[in-house]
Design a binder for these strands. Structure first.
Lengths: 243, 243
DNA sequence: AAGGTTGGTTAACGCATGTTAGCGCTACAT
DNA sequence: ATGTAGCGCTAACATGCGTTAACCAACCTT
């Protein structure tokens, strides 16, 4: 049971080396593991007293709908990420969450959170740190939408995703498996699907990166980093083992 | 000394009615109050072990710079807001903070946070709630940048700011004092200053709202809400006095 | 086999917004 | 009084991206 928690453990370990009892504390959720198929929302905006989850396997996306029917994807979550923790604290969901692929997740409720805070302040700090990282990612996305043009935005997105997946062992320096469609990218990056397609072609033709058939391949990582002005500083504050 | 904390107290009271001892606990920061003038940053991106603050008076802005020299303003903070709490948890500042007006703020450090968590779980929950609200605001801004056009964006911005100021008694339903320049709006909303000017003129000519000489006046609140698709749901989850 | 659906792809056209440039006002320093 | 810096304001022009409309391939479903 502790085993499946691996992605979260890898992430938190980037913040501080956890003791065995802390690892055990994380594993001791009595709440059930749940599976969700594509098409069934985990959480819907406006919903009261929603549950939060830790994502063990698969990808999900968080989004908000506008009256016009358009949607803005706030972020994608990958194994090891928290789902809907903010909505738990707010007591009303401020966004919706749906699977991108079939997923496995563990429920967490307020009581679990409080128990962790009681049993291990260090673990609590690690979780607050992980939450803050999520916040930093959203802020960086906001910078993208506000001040980067389409190419920079797309390049930055794939680099960031790669960095996040690497932490949980799902990416190498060369690329990673990515189940998103071009429509997903459009809704996440504030562009039209047509323009996403144009940009992907350009990235391909200039031999910077390739996104095709569910695979991201970095052809010229350094140049890509330069174009995107990608700086990992906002993501890797842990550096493992401080304090 | 407790008195000056009023803006934060008003905010947290929207989440739960605080006991006298909880109010006292909030007031018992031994850290000094500090003043900052325009031009002196409170925090700079990349800085290690920065301090966080509670803003008592004045306005500040949080921003990130791009290589090109452009900047994206992430959010403005008004009295009662936390400053740099995420950077405190991350141990490295992921954004910079500078005053918009001269300000007064109280320092808070990790030790203060931990003390509050120890002394009063309810107060801790209230603070986590306030933090989550800040997160929800950033997410809503992200939706604006991704999917709203210029008019909707500007309208939404002023409505949201009004709602936030109202909580701490700095706005009425008709309008509020606002020390921002059109350049501030441009950097916050991902538009050019020229276009901000165009949009403000349009809002004025269509008698929806006026922003002039440091004052925001709502001329047709309802229509403005409709144009912006402004829904306060993401801001007022507290509703005072639940549990 | 036929039809529907989803995702990728491209071209033509239009528009919202950026860019550049310039004018005027106020505040403030010299 | 004179410069200078910041801010508001506007016009003319340029462009990045959206929109619409197709076509194709892969994969369902029946």
């Amino acid at each position: 049971m502790i085993d499946v928690q691996n992605p979260l453990l890898s992430k938190l370990s980037a913040f501080a080396t956890l003791t065995n009892s802390e690892r055990a504390s994380l594993g001791r959720f009595d709440r059930p593991r749940r599976c969700f198929e594509i098409g069934t929302d985990l959480m819907r905006e406006g919903e009261k007293n929603s549950t939060a989850y830790i994502l063990l396997d698969g990808w999900v996306l968080s989004y908000k709908l506008l009256r016009s029917g358009e949607r803005q994807i706030v972020d994608f979550q990958v194994p090891g990420d928290f789902l809907g923790l903010r909505s738990l604290l707010l007591r009303t969901a401020d966004h919706s969450i749906e699977p991108v692929t079939p997923i496995i997740a563990v429920e967490i409720g307020m009581t679990d959170l409080l128990r962790i805070f009681r049993e291990s302040p260090r673990l609590a700090a690690a979780m607050l740190w992980a939450l803050s990282t999520d916040g930093a990612v959203v802020v960086e996305r906001l910078v993208s939408l506000g001040r980067r043009d389409a190419i920079e935005r797309v390049a930055h997105f794939f680099l960031e995703l790669g960095a996040r997946l690497k932490v949980v062992g799902l990416a190498t320096g060369d690329g990673y498996a990515c189940p998103l469609s071009q429509y997903h990218l459009a809704d996440a990056l504030g562009l039209s699907a047509v323009h996403i397609n144009r940009v992907l072609r350009q990235l391909r033709e200039e031999e910077l990166m390739t996104f095709r058939a569910g695979k991201v391949t970095f052809d010229n990582f350094d140049k890509l980093v330069q174009i995107a002005q990608f700086d990992t500083a906002y993501m890797d504050h842990g550096g493992a083992a401080r304090e």
